[in-house]
Design a protein around this nucleic acid. Structure first.
Length: 225
DNA sequence: TAGGCCATCTGGTCCT
DNA sequence: AGGACCAGATGGCCTA
């Protein structure tokens, strides 16, 4: 491992860091996108099959394109919250090789073994922690757009994280585009002088001459709140 | 059958 | 000391 990359950046620091409207470079060129596409092959449901509208815009289309589907039968995961002792014993008997104790994964133990009660307590804590993590992932799945349907396989963990990341980028891009449109409309001549209907959102970007670099960073794009 | 995904156990490290 | 966090290892389940 090399130097730490610093705190994670939830949002691009400036509008210039965002992809141009209609040109989802940040999404398309993102190294994580390749991962997302790779994992999407196995986990992302076919959009539209679930009957959910997908956010518009080029980035939305890009994101949608990553959601190639493997819609199949319900991939319900077992979440056995049994008695901890039973979980311990069950795992021992069902998932571990007979006599395969010792280090977790064959690592030879180098220090005196903890008392069994302490080991059980540690195992239970870790199990609870992982369940909490899974609950949080379920919460994340519930707010990112993909086909939530019993007939659709649940997003994998990695796919959930990658999709959420792309979704955040897409939302930031849409917000940025909206801000530019508002800024443009504020400077535009009166509506009476503008013939024709207002162009649909997403196509308006082609009609007004602004670039992302021309605008200051959005103040609420902060990781501190 | 291979590969992907997952749950679980385990030991190590860091923090309070 | 105890708890949280992490990564490695392992086996089970499921799908292509």
């Amino acid at each position: 491992m090399s130097a730490a990359p610093g705190p994670p950046q939830l949002f691009p620091a400036a509008a210039a860091d965002l992809p141009e409207p209609g040109e989802p470079k940040a999404l398309g060129g993102d190294p994580y996108l390749a991962l997302a596409q790779r994992y999407s092959q196995t986990a992302f449901a076919a959009y539209g099959a679930g009957g959910e509208a997908f956010p518009g815009g080029a980035a939305g289309q890009e994101l949608r394109a990553t959601m190639l589907g493997r819609a199949s039968e319900s991939g319900e995961e077992q979440s056995d919250d049994d008695d901890e002792e039973a979980a311990f014993e069950g795992a021992r008997t069902a998932k571990r090789p007979a006599g395969g104790g010792g280090g977790g994964g064959g690592v030879p133990s180098k220090r005196p073994k903890e008392p069994r009660s302490l080991r059980l307590s540690i195992n239970a804590r870790e199990r609870r922690r992982m369940h909490d993590l899974n609950d949080a992932l379920d919460g994340l799945r519930s707010v990112i757009p993909y086909a939530h349907s019993p007939s659709v396989r649940k997003l994998s963990k990695i796919a959930t994280l990658l999709l959420a990341k792309n979704y955040i980028l897409m939302q930031a891009q849409a917000l940025d585009e909206m801000r530019r449109l508002v800024a443009y409309l504020n400077q535009a001549p009166p509506l009476a002088a503008a013939p024709g209907p207002v162009p649909p959102f997403g196509q308006a970007a082609a009609l007004y001459p602004f670039t992302g670099a021309a605008l200051p960073a959005c103040p609420e794009k902060s990781t501190t709140d």
